[in-house]
Simulated assay, not measured.
Amino acid sequence: MRDTCGVRRVLVTGAGGYLGLNLLPRLVATGWTVRALGPHRPTTEHALPVGVEWVTGSVLDEEILSEAMAGCDAVVHLAARITLRRSDPVAWRLNTRGPALVAAEARRRSIRLVHCSSVHALDCSRGGVITEDAPLSGAGRPLYDRSKAVGQRAVLAQVAKGLDAVICLPTGIIGPIDHRGSRVNGSSSPPQEALGRRWWPEASTGWMCGTSPPASRSPSTGAERAGPTC
Rank of each mutant, 00 (worst) to 15 (best):
E45V: 04
L60F: 13
S66M: 05
E45R: 14
V129K: 05
S110R: 13
A154E: 12
C124D: 10
A100I: 00
R93V: 04
W32M: 05
V155T: 06
Q152M: 08
L101P: 01
E67T: 15
C116F: 06
L60C: 13
A160K: 12
I111W: 02
T30C: 13
D88A: 03
P135Y: 07
R109A: 10
Q158M: 01
P49S: 10
V59C: 07
R146S: 00
C124P: 01
V76M: 08
H46Y: 09
T131H: 06
S147M: 03
T30Q: 12
G172F: 09
Y144G: 09
T44W: 08
G140D: 08
K148C: 01
P170E: 08
A79E: 09
V75A: 14
C124M: 14
H46N: 15
L156M: 03
E63W: 14
C72V: 14
A70N: 07
S58E: 03
A104I: 07
E53A: 08
S118E: 13
G140I: 09
S58C: 00
G172N: 14
P89M: 01
H115F: 05
E132G: 05
R126S: 15
S110M: 05
K148D: 09
D133C: 04
P135H: 01
S125D: 04
G140P: 03
A121C: 05
V102E: 05
P135S: 08
L136F: 10
S66F: 03
S147F: 09
I82M: 15
T33G: 15
L37I: 06
L113P: 04
V59A: 10
V150I: 08
L84Y: 11
L94I: 13
A36Q: 07
E132V: 04
P49R: 06
D88C: 06
G151H: 00
L65W: 02
A100W: 00
D61G: 05
A121W: 01
A149C: 09
A104T: 12
S110P: 07
V75P: 12
P99F: 01
D145G: 00
L84W: 12
E53W: 01
S66W: 06
I82F: 14
T83F: 03
G71W: 06
M69G: 14
W32F: 15
V166D: 05
A70E: 14
V34A: 04
R86F: 03
L60E: 12
G51Y: 11
R109P: 07
E132C: 02
K148M: 02
A79K: 12
G98F: 05
L113H: 08
A70K: 11
A68E: 12
D164Y: 00
